[in-house]
């Protein structure tokens, strides 16, 4: 409470000072920076958000609980930063916390959801994936962005993971069943499925409107990794697989894209790779190695600066660390964050 008051006062004073000599009124303490999603440990409710000031380099830990005097929950799977409002998707806590993007003050909590995973915004609607359970079929919930009410739900596949909206279609990776669901909103939400390899995860949309899909790879009957991770390029005009890039390993199905939507970034072990979206073959040389990391867990690219952020989970045994690299892969610096940094949001 005291901290909250202090922060409010500080904020007020900034507003007053700034009003005099500048037209642009700061919207809040976290207006210009990078959010690190620290997922936290399962059942400990210690997921958190670390803020990194883009120009100031200031680091604030646990900003959600600092501002709102309540823990964020577990496992914070992802965040979506929209104009004014930011959506924090907390998987095991069965909720989405909606906060002011600039002050991080809690606006509302969407709690009638089951194992939510990822969210995106298109027009005035939010699209939120939910696993529902480990046995039920997953779904996409269409969210009213101002009230947080769920307006409709669309069944997709088992383990509904990442979601993107391109045109009138919703694309969802179904992590448990190795497919992608494509829902045509213009055609009564009719859904089709594309078969991919095992463990489809995060996606990004490139400058051509094509979707890049990561697939972790599967497991053999004797539990050993099947070493069949892959990266797909899906043409959203035809809704067919345009290119398949197969790896001979399993990897963490995470991906990021550069500010001009020309280049996708992914990592295998501690090696971070960059791939030009128009190239027909993958580079065998990594852009850089995060050699000081214990266990690379998440990746993000600042759409303003092109700086690459890599999260090291430190195997969840310690607080995580974030390493920063410029677009050429030159190491900039690193800083300590919360537990299990798995992704980033940019304001």
């Amino acid at each position: 409470m005291k901290q909250f008051l202090l922060k409010s006062l500080l904020l007020l004073s900034i507003v007053f000072v700034s009003c005099g000599d500048d037209d642009s009124v700061p919207l809040g303490e976290y207006e210009n920076g990078v959010f690190v999603v620290n997922e936290g440990n399962f059942l400990e409710g210690d997921g958190s958000i670390t803020y990194y000031g883009r120009t100031t380099g200031t680091i604030d830990q646990t900003i959600f609980s600092g501002v709102n005097d309540a823990s964020l929950g577990d496992v914070v799977q992802s965040m979506y930063v929209n104009d004014g409002l930011t959506y924090l998707v907390v998987n095991n806590s069965n909720k989405v916390e909606v906060v002011n993007s600039y002050t991080f003050e809690s606006e509302l909590t969407i709690s009638d959801v089951l194992l939510p995973r990822y969210m995106t915004v298109s027009g005035d609607k939010g699209y939120l994936t939910e696993w529902v359970s480990f046995s039920d079929v997953g779904r996409v919930s269409v969210v009213n962005l101002t009230t947080g009410d769920i307006e409709s739900q669309i069944s997709v596949g088992s383990g509904a993971e990442d979601v993107e909206v391109v045109g009138n279609k919703i694309y969802v990776t179904n992590n448990f069943e190795g497919t992608m669901s494509i829902v045509d909103m213009a055609n009564d939400n009719s859904a089709t499925k594309l078969t991919l390899t095992s463990g489809p995860g995060e996606m990004v949309v490139d400058k051509n409107g094509d979707i890049w899909v990561t697939c972790r790879g599967g497991f053999n009957a004797d539990f050993s990794p099947a070493n069949n991770g892959a990266l797909y390029k899906i043409n959203t005009q035809t809704d067919e697989i345009e290119s398949t890039f197969s790896f001979d390993v399993n990897y963490t199905a995470k991906i990021a894209i550069d500010p001009t939507l020309d280049k996708v970034y992914y990592f295998i072990g501690k090696s971070v790779y960059a791939h030009d979206v128009d190239n027909t073959s993958l580079s065998t040389e990594p852009l850089f190695e995060v050699s000081d990391a214990t266990s690379v867990y998440g990746i993000g690219v600042d759409p303003e600066t092109g700086v690459i952020y890599v999260g090291d989970s430190k195997s969840f045994l310690e607080d995580g660390e974030v390493f920063r690299y410029d677009a050429n892969g030159t190491f900039l610096d690193s800083f300590q964050v919360g537990r299990g940094p798995n992704g980033f949001g940019f304001n």
């Binding site: 409710g45 929950g73 907390v90 095991n92 806590s93 069965n94 909720k95 709690s111």
Partner: peptide, 9 residues
């Protein structure tokens, strides 16, 4: 019992 602020059931 869920952690505080969690609505898991």
């Amino acid at each position: 019992q869920p952690t505080v602020t969690s609505s898991s059931r």
